[in-house]
């Protein structure tokens, strides 16, 4: 049985790492939802767009080359130089900020004071629009993303655990860097929200739009700010997922995995998104491990399940919706009687 225990530990650790990847996507949702009450369906596509832009810039490809070529009959595809990773990342951040400006100027500025459902519908439209733009801009081929993050199994952990426990844990280097980056990102975001003037304005807008307006906070500015932050978070998520599984259109579907994370952690809590992600990641990995194992589940029930990862998170989220609708860390609804 200790063997099983060791396996379970390794599975949980890997689950935690996957959970952080989910949390990165969920974080983008939380930022926008908190500050504007908009549930941003396009967050996943933003991650895709950010990753594609990053790859495109890195490889020095010409944006909209298909379009340009078919209009002018030219054959340009590449500039013929490669952009170093760091510079490419900075340029992509600039693109995401430009996107935030665009969204605010052409979409949400005109929808101030509308019902949440209308804003939600607008983000669905935005998601498809952005998916189309990504395709038009960079083409639809699957691309490898490499910004110099370490790949492969971490040898040190493997050796250390082998010596201590007689069984080496396989943990991906990429997952470890994702965890570190996520931790830094969350710390920075929380510090920003709690201790800076703009962060305070952001939280004020989240609480009461009208009152924020009345003290002279510009909603437009704060919303551009949060969409930019969400864009940067989307970039980080896109880089992580893109490095893991290649940059392709299915990347936008990771947004769906963020939903149960949000329900668990609460739509309005930054730490909630992280902890929700960890619980979902570890929960689904452990659950899969137990119910698909012949020695554990099979020995008691005589049959096993598999591919539970596809639905486990959603069932867990459903249970949370019934018993604790604001999530683990969601803002308590303050109701004075």
């Amino acid at each position: 049985m200790p063997d099983q225990l060791l396996f379970a530990m390794e599975v949980s650790l890997n689950g935690l790492m996957t959970g952080i990847m989910y949390a990165l996507v969920a974080l983008g949702f939380v930022l926008i939802y908190k500050a504007s009450g908009i549930f941003n369906y396009s967050q996943g596509v933003m991650a895709l767009f950010a990753a594609m832009t990053l790859v495109g810039i890195q490889e020095g490809r010409v944006p909209f080359s298909h379009l340009i070529n078919s209009i002018f009959g030219t054959h340009i595809t590449e500039f013929g130089f490669e952009v170093p990773a760091l510079l490419a990342i900075l340029l992509t951040v600039a693109v995401m900020i430009a996107f935030a400006l665009f969204v605010q100027k052409f979409v949400f500025r005109h929808l101030v004071g509308q019902e949440p459902i209308i804003l939600f519908m607008a983000t669905i439209g935005l998601a498809y629009f952005l998916e189309g733009v990504s395709d038009l801009m960079w083409g639809s081929e699957i691309r490898q993303l490499d910004v110099g993050l370490p790949q492969g199994i971490n040898g040190a952990i493997d050796n250390a655990t082998f010596e201590a426990l007689g069984y080496g844990f396989f943990i991906d280097n990429l997952d470890i860097s994702a965890a570190i980056i996520a931790a830094i990102l969350v710390a920075v975001l929380i510090a920003f929200a709690q201790y800076t003037k703009q962060g305070r304005a952001m939280r004020a807008v989240a609480d009461d739009h009208q009152a924020a307006l009345s003290v002279g906070i510009s909603l437009n500015y704060v919303w551009i700010l949060v969409w930019s932050l969400a864009g940067i978070v989307a970039l980080v998520a896109g880089v992580m997922w893109g490095s893991k599984s290649g940059v392709q259109f299915s990347l936008s579907l990771i947004a769906l995995k963020a939903l149960p994370v949000l329900m668990l952690g609460g739509f309005t809590s930054i730490p909630g998104a992280i902890i929700g992600g960890l619980i979902i990641g570890m929960g689904e990995a452990l659950f899969e491990f137990v119910v698909s194992s012949n020695d554990l589940f099979g020995a008691w029930f005589g049959f096993t399940f598999s591919a539970t990862e596809n639905w486990f998170a959603y069932v867990l989220a459903l249970a949370f919706l019934v018993f604790r609708p604001q999530g683990l860390f969601g803002e308590r609804i303050i109701e004075r009687v």
Binding site: A206, D208, Q210, A212, L213, V215
Partner: peptide, 30 residues
């Protein structure tokens, strides 16, 4: 509204409209 606040005109809205999740001091600072 923010231009007006800069010119010295500010409204205190009906029904208080404090920022519920901010502390009293943070409210004042906004």
């Amino acid at each position: 509204p923010s231009d007006l606040v800069e010119r010295g005109v500010i409204q205190v809205m009906e029904g208080r409209h404090c920022f519920e999740h901010l502390t009293v001091e943070e409210n004042l600072l906004t």
